[in-house]
Design a protein around this nucleic acid. Structure first.
Lengths: 228, 228
DNA sequence: ATCAACATGATTGTATACAATATTGACGAC
DNA sequence: GTCGTCAATATTGTATACAATCATGTTGAT
């Protein structure tokens, strides 16, 4: 019970949560001093946390220039979503094969939490939506698969934070309910299809087709060149 | 050209290489002072490197007890190999779809390096074998997929270091040649089959069926109880 | 006015010092 | 002799101090 967590752990978790809840948006500078002062710890602990976040791909770490919340490009976004579809399809296939009633209970309980948080329209519902997918991966029993899903869901949160218009909950709760139902039906093809449709819907919310990002400043300035 | 690399980067790369070349075997204690003294840097840089290696899953980091080279269990080993088969099958499917002649050249060049290092029977051939698979993943153009393959290949190296009898090259070079040939033939089914057979061969080398690991001390002592 | 060179301040990279925790060995009770 | 307790040592976790690098604004020449 008594979880001993080091200070760098605390900073890591809080920063991560802040980023995934879109309180810290992509591109935000993460100055070590600022964070250290705010959490009342030394820069040492902050640096350790930033190194970890960088390894997970949600923080960029440019040499001698400090850290900032990662800004996935449109290209990376499509790449990541494609891989996500593949990973989560595998999750579904494995779960259809052996999903116990206890597992279903946990999933249903999670969805109830999501529903309760729905009126919130805040960071909580954003986080819970992602954690539903992570929970699915964990229920496969594969540590490695769950690890990858966790990482890729995090990066998808970043993508939505960057590109999606309003930071509404990423997943419709109803779609999660459908996934659970499909799993219980033990129909692999259907379950997989519903998951892929769900992920496609999430991707649509990100509006990856519309180049709203303007990740490159020069691209913006190009259009102003003629206005002289 | 002038690559500026921080000291923690250097330590990270060297430690990683030493582990993947099986110079540092699973379970080896990684005392910060020892490493710092050896590389003539401060513990600060060493710690940063260890945090990164821990995030990649090749170093275990127990609180207040220091770091050691990760010791994957048999269960984890099977889990990781299963996921590896899935990821690399995807790599093959993508490569068959669009593999340029330049890509083939790079693969063939790599295999030549492997052949040259074969007589070596040393760490170099171990590393090159793994890097062939990473190169394949990179040629898909998917950063995310390459990243996951890189991580999972690293962990497979650890598994082989722990369980395989002799630390012979993990992959037969000939099998790599076959993979290239299958890719050039543009026959997805065949290419995928050959890759899966190859990975199966690698897994067999690890002798994951035989419980040679004895990860649990009590299991060992059990057999000595009667000798008392 | 424009631009380059430089000086100043701010921020990161690294080393060292100190605090907290774990490991080891010795001592003493039984 | 065995076990538990405690002191001494070693190692990790954290903070602070210093060095190196980058950002910014000023000065001065053209």
């Amino acid at each position: 019970m008594s979880e001993k967590s080091s200070r760098s752990d605390v900073v890591y978790r809080l920063l991560r949560q802040a980023i995934l809840e879109q309180a810290l948006r992509p591109g935000t500078k993460l100055a070590e001093d600022t964070i250290a002062d705010h959490f009342k710890v030394s820069r040492t602990s902050v640096r350790a946390a930033l190194v970890r976040l960088n390894a997970e791909g949600i923080v960029d770490l440019r040499a001698n220039k400090g850290a900032c919340v990662a800004e996935p490009t449109l290209e990376e976004a499509r790449d990541i979503f494609a891989l996500r579809r593949m990973l989560e399809a595998e999750v579904i296939r494995r779960l259809v094969a052996d999903l116990g009633s206890a597992d279903v209970k946990r999933l249903e309980q999670h969805v109830r939490q999501e529903e309760a948080a729905l009126s919130d329209h805040g960071p909580l519902s954003i986080r819970l939506a992602g954690e539903f997918h992570i929970l699915l991966a964990e229920l496969t029993g594969s540590q490695a698969l769950a690890r990858f899903v966790r990482e890729i869901v995090s990066r998808c949160s970043l993508i939505l934070a960057r590109f999606a218009r309003l930071h509404s909950p990423e997943c419709a709760v109803d779609e999660h309910v459908q996934i659970i139902r499909a799993l219980r039906s033990r129909d692999t093809a259907t379950a997989e299809r519903i998951m892929l449709e769900h992920l496609h819907a999430v991707e649509l919310r990100a509006e990856l087709d519309i180049d709203k990002a303007e990740p490159d400043i020069s691209a913006v300035l190009q259009r102003y060149a003629s206005k002289g």
